[in-house]
Design a protein around this nucleic acid. Sequence first.
DNA 1: AAAAATTTAGAACAAATGTTTGCAATCCTT
DNA 2: AAGGATTGCAAACATTTGTTCTAAATTTTT
Lengths: 199, 199
Amino acid sequence: MLDKRKLDAVLSFINRYTDENGFPPTVRDICAELQIKSTATAYDYVNRLKEMGRLQKTAGKKRAVALANSNTVRVPLIGTVTAGAPILASENYEGFYTLPTAEFSGDGLFLLTVKGDSMIEAGIFDGDKIVVRKQETAENGDIVVAMFDDGVSEGATVKRFFVRDGKYILHPENSALHDYILDSVTILGKVIGLLRSFR
Amino acid sequence: MLDKRKLDAVLSFINRYTDENGFPPTVRDICAELQIKSTATAYDYVNRLKEMGRLQKTAGKKRAVALANSNTVRVPLIGTVTAGAPILASENYEGFYTLPTAEFSGDGLFLLTVKGDSMIEAGIFDGDKIVVRKQETAENGDIVVAMFDDGVSEGATVKRFFVRDGKYILHPENSALHDYILDSVTILGKVIGLLRSFR
DNA sequence: AAAAATTTAGAACAAATGTTTGCAATCCTT
DNA sequence: AAGGATTGCAAACATTTGTTCTAAATTTTT
């Protein structure tokens, strides 16, 4: 049995190198880094890692190794959640953000910039970028992005979601604001995290 | 003058390809995608983009193109800030997180997991990962990570920083807690952002 | 419209890099 | 300690892929 630490070292070098350079290392790069004397050895390690499913590689191609479990996701920033304003006009995305899967993972993620203070007591501040997982349903207590129309106003907001007595409640985490109690809401997604940068 | 849209198309293909595959395309891949008939043409485009500073490439290397403005940074997660506990034991880092430069940029960044509620009114919650830029000094009002020793207790904490009357004040954003007024502090860095993921 | 400059193509070339092979070294089992 | 299995090395080999060159096509300028 081959020393597990060596394989780990190779994997983590590939990881680091790819991240620093934007492209993967060659077998010779791996040799140089890990003081391996033969390209065949490094080549062998890479193939073992492939068999173990720990990385992907296409035979023949140069520099075509890639980590199996990419530790990043690309997530589109698609607009702003503002009370009253429509969002999600699919074409107004403002670019992609690369996020660490260690923190944010799943399919159908997107980012929204939060406008307003309605969730301030949940630690969601004006200007924060929330990470949302697209889904049509939600459970009691989830923080969601939802579209509503209560006759008075309409739009998309981020609120805590509850169902009670057949009514849908969108609860702002701000004691100065009142709940929206609605007959119908459209859930756009569940808030699974956020990014904030201070000035 | 060469059609700007073509160059943009090449660049965005390189971007997309790299992201989908984990490694950059070859000139022949570019040809196939953009229906260019000669590798020399694609090669020429790539070189122009390089001259324009829009991407980096090393002559000779295979698949060695990379987007110039790498839109990510690798940031080490190096521990936990807990009142009373030492941090930054350089070897106990818990891995690297890739973050978008659009949100977090600069040199000497690191991540810390926050323990405790001392900054809850500033929207920094227990369990959040704060992005810290290493620096020895701070300005009034900055949120900092600092080491202190007031004779009663010592350790590293995250607090808002002030100087007044020759004293250093570490101010928790939690009305239930009191300020630390100190003769000396060691600033480890300034908090420039945070990540949070909900359960 | 002619001339000049630019862009693209086609093909050949050269270098980087993956792959294979045979053997030496090391480790493990008996 | 002997024998087999595993691992590592060195060198050659094969293929991918960047690069160069020349000429044709296209666009721009005069």
